[in-house]
Design a protein around this nucleic acid. Structure first.
Lengths: 194, 194
DNA sequence: CACATATTTCAGAAAATACTGAAACTTCAG
DNA sequence: CTGAAGTTTCAGTATTTTCTGAAATATGTG
C-alpha cells in the first residue's frame, strides 16, 4: 500500500469498517480512497495505491457502481475509465440511504405484507402476525418520514437537523396558538409505553 | 427447522438479511424467533425450532446480549436461562441505533479527530483532510440530531416523524410571525449546494 | 459433597467469501 | 483487419467466518 500516512489511516479504517457493513475490505478501501482523492482515479491508480490485484479492483468498482456510489467519467484523449465520488457529501448520504432502503427495507416490507395477508392458523401465529404488523408499521413510518425530508434541499435539511427536538417546542407553541379540535386517535394505542 | 410456516418465512428472511448487516445467519434467526415469540425461550427451545447446534445458539445468544438486544430472565423453579426481546418495538429501535453508533460511528469519529489534528504534508493530504472534516461535521450533525430526538418520549417522536417535512411549513410560519433579528450564522457555510 | 442439569468454550470441520492470475473480451486507432 | 490498450470474467486458491461435537465449567439440589 502506497499512500500518504494520513490517507492510509483512513483507508485502512474504512476497509475494516466495511466488514461490519456487509461490504468487503477492498470495496471499502477503494471507496475511501476515491472519497479522499481530489482527482478521479483509474483502476490502475487504485491497484498501485492499495496494492491489490487488478481484477479485485475491477470487481470492487463494479460493486460500487451497482450501489451508485461512484461516478464513471473520462478524460479527453484517454480511454481509461476514471472514477470519483460526488463532491457533495449530502449527495452521498442520500444515495446510501436510498440504496440501503432498496436492498434491505423494500424486500422486507414485501415479505411482511405477504405474510400479513395470510390467515393465522394458531394463537402462536396470531401473535407472530401482530409483531410483524408492528414492524411493518414502524418501517412505514420511518420510510415515510425519510421520503418526506429527503425532498428538502440540503440547506433546509441541515436546518431541520440542527434544530433537532427543539422543533417540539415550536409544535407545542403552535398547538397552543391554534387549538386543534379532537385530533383523531385512529391507531389503537399500545398501553405499555415504559 | 420446526416452525409454523408464517414464522418460518420471517425467520428465514431475517437470517438472510443478517448477512447484509454483518451479523451471521444464526444470530439473525435467533433474534427473529425471539421477536415473534410470545413467551421467552430457552436455549434448548431455540435449538429445536431452528435445528442448529446447541453451541451455535449459545454463541448467538451471547452476541445478542453483547448488543443488548435480548433480555435474560428466569422462571420460578427453573434454572434455565430464558430470553426475550422488549415488547416495545421503539425500545428495540433505540437500542439498535445506540449500539450501531457505538460500534461504527464513535470509532470513526475518534479516528477522524485524530487525523484532523495532524499537519498535512502535501496538497494531497490537505485535500484529504478537508474531505475528512466534511465527514466529521456530517456525523456530528447527525449524531447531534439523534441525541436530541432520542430523548423525546415515543409519542412525541412518532408525532415528529409523522409530521416529516411539514415541520418546515411551521418553521416558515414561525419565522414570519416572529422575525428573528440577525439570526447568527455561526457555522461556516459550504458554498457548493448543487 | 456428589450428582444432575445447564451453559460455555474451543479445536477442528465445513461453508462461504474474497482474492488472484490468466485468459477472454471489448474498443478503438491506424 | 490488426494490434495495442483497457476491462471483465472466471476457475482455482487463500482466507475468513460459521458451525459443530466434545470437553470443560458452572450452578444449583438433595
Amino acid at each position: 500500500m502506497n499512500l500518504p500516512p494520513l490517507v492510509q489511516t483512513f483507508v485502512l479504517h474504512f476497509g475494516e469498517m466495511g466488514s461490519r457493513w456487509g461490504i468487503n475490505r477492498t470495496v471499502g478501501q477503494i471507496y475511501a480512497l476515491l472519497y479522499l482523492s481530489k482527482e478521479p482515479l483509474n483502476a490502475e491508480d487504485i491497484v498501485e495505491r492499495l496494492g491489490v490485484s487488478r481484477s479485485n479492483v475491477s470487481m470492487g468498482l463494479k460493486e460500487l457502481q451497482a450501489w451508485n456510489l461512484v461516478r464513471l467519467q473520462h478524460k479527453p484523449g484517454d480511454r481509461r475509465d476514471y472514477f470519483s465520488t460526488p463532491d457533495d457529501i449530502w449527495q452521498i448520504v442520500r444515495t446510501l440511504v436510498e440504496e440501503r432502503k432498496k436492498r434491505e427495507i423494500d424486500p422486507t416490507m414485501t415479505l411482511l405484507r405477504e405474510v400479513l395477508m395470510q390467515e393465522p392458523a394458531s394463537t402462536e401465529e396470531r401473535h407472530a402476525q401482530e409483531r410483524m404488523r408492528e414492524m411493518h408499521d414502524l418501517f412505514e413510518l420511518l420510510t415515510g418520514w425519510y421520503a418526506d425530508v429527503q425532498r428538502l434541499d440540503t440547506e433546509r435539511l441541515v436546518q431541520l437537523l440542527t434544530l433537532g427536538s427543539k422543533v417540539q417546542k415550536i409544535l407545542e407553541m403552535k398547538d397552543r396558538l391554534f387549538v386543534v379540535p379532537g385530533s383523531k386517535k385512529s391507531r389503537r394505542d399500545d398501553p405499555k409505553d415504559k
